[in-house]
Amino acid sequence: MVARLLPRAWNTVRPHEVLNERTHIVNDCLTRLLGEDAIASKEMSQAAELALEAASACSPSGRPIYTANAALPVPAAPHLAFWHATTLLREHRGDGHVSTLVAAQLDGLEALVTHTATGTNWSPGFLRRTRGWSGEEWADAQMRLCERGLLAADGTLTPQGIDLRRAVEADTDRLDAGPYQHLGAADTMRLTELSNAFSKVVLACGGLPLQEIGRI
């Protein structure tokens, strides 16, 4: 899907234009969802400072998506700097997660199938549509996983599949520990507290309609 669409995208708009527009969209969304008082608060400034400090200890080795985002300038406004830093932390973890999936011999589609089988809010229909996989390809991946003893006939994870997914998450945590070890326990706890508070407001305002996603 990416290989098919991305070249056409760059014929329509240039990368720097996309990045500029993305920043404008993030600013508008956070201002609308959190409110002007929140984005101008001392808590937001502290969250940005802590998240950027944690991100400064991220490792670029084997992490192409993190590295690409890390090459972008840090926005001046605290709420945008906080968003930028959380993007770095997310992609640092995400790139490490891909490494653990490869080590577990799960391809991209098999990773999605086993992920939905854990009972998350992400429905197979939503992931197939947004990732470009057909129903036949999804069924083929389920068959491969059944043959490996990771998936049961009813689409649920077997005990072996559960153990594998737990091992993948544990390895992902291990590979992602550096930024938070650098930040320290107290500051990591404070960053978590601030992030959770902002996230709850965003969710309460419908910023991420998880229930709707689950129905697709």
Rank of each mutant, 00 (worst) to 15 (best):
residue 1 M to D: 00
residue 2 V to D: 01
residue 2 V to R: 05
residue 4 R to M: 03
residue 6 L to T: 10
residue 6 L to A: 09
residue 8 R to H: 10
residue 8 R to Y: 14
residue 9 A to R: 08
residue 10 W to H: 05
residue 12 T to I: 00
residue 16 H to F: 07
residue 16 H to C: 06
residue 17 E to A: 11
residue 21 E to Q: 14
residue 26 V to W: 12
residue 27 N to V: 14
residue 28 D to K: 11
residue 28 D to A: 11
residue 33 L to D: 00
residue 33 L to P: 00
residue 38 A to V: 02
residue 38 A to T: 04
residue 40 A to L: 03
residue 40 A to M: 04
residue 40 A to V: 02
residue 45 S to M: 11
residue 45 S to F: 02
residue 47 A to D: 00
residue 47 A to G: 00
residue 48 A to F: 03
residue 48 A to D: 04
residue 52 L to A: 02
residue 52 L to I: 14
residue 53 E to K: 09
residue 57 A to N: 05
residue 60 P to T: 14
residue 61 S to H: 14
residue 66 Y to A: 02
residue 71 A to H: 00
residue 74 V to A: 02
residue 75 P to G: 02
residue 78 P to Y: 00
residue 79 H to P: 07
residue 81 A to G: 01
residue 81 A to I: 01
residue 84 H to C: 03
residue 85 A to G: 01
residue 86 T to C: 12
residue 86 T to Q: 13
residue 87 T to G: 06
residue 88 L to H: 03
residue 88 L to E: 02
residue 89 L to N: 03
residue 91 E to N: 10
residue 92 H to T: 01
residue 93 R to C: 03
residue 97 H to Y: 07
residue 102 V to L: 11
residue 103 A to L: 09
residue 106 L to Q: 03
residue 108 G to K: 09
residue 108 G to M: 11
residue 112 L to T: 15
residue 113 V to D: 04
residue 114 T to A: 10
residue 115 H to W: 12
residue 116 T to E: 04
residue 117 A to T: 13
residue 126 F to K: 06
residue 131 R to S: 13
residue 132 G to T: 13
residue 132 G to L: 06
residue 132 G to Q: 12
residue 137 E to G: 12
residue 138 W to A: 07
residue 139 A to H: 09
residue 144 R to V: 08
residue 144 R to G: 13
residue 145 L to M: 13
residue 146 C to E: 11
residue 148 R to K: 13
residue 149 G to W: 08
residue 150 L to F: 04
residue 153 A to G: 11
residue 155 G to E: 10
residue 156 T to A: 14
residue 159 P to S: 03
residue 160 Q to W: 06
residue 162 I to N: 09
residue 164 L to R: 03
residue 169 E to H: 13
residue 171 D to T: 01
residue 173 D to H: 02
residue 174 R to Y: 13
residue 179 P to M: 04
residue 180 Y to R: 10
residue 180 Y to H: 07
residue 183 L to W: 12
residue 183 L to M: 14
residue 185 A to M: 15
residue 185 A to T: 15
residue 193 E to G: 06
residue 195 S to H: 09
residue 195 S to W: 04
residue 198 F to N: 01
residue 201 V to E: 09
residue 202 V to Q: 12
residue 204 A to M: 06
residue 204 A to D: 08
residue 207 G to E: 04
residue 207 G to A: 04
residue 208 L to S: 15
residue 210 L to S: 10
residue 211 Q to V: 15
residue 213 I to D: 01
residue 213 I to L: 09
residue 213 I to C: 03
residue 214 G to F: 01
residue 216 I to D: 08
residue 216 I to K: 05
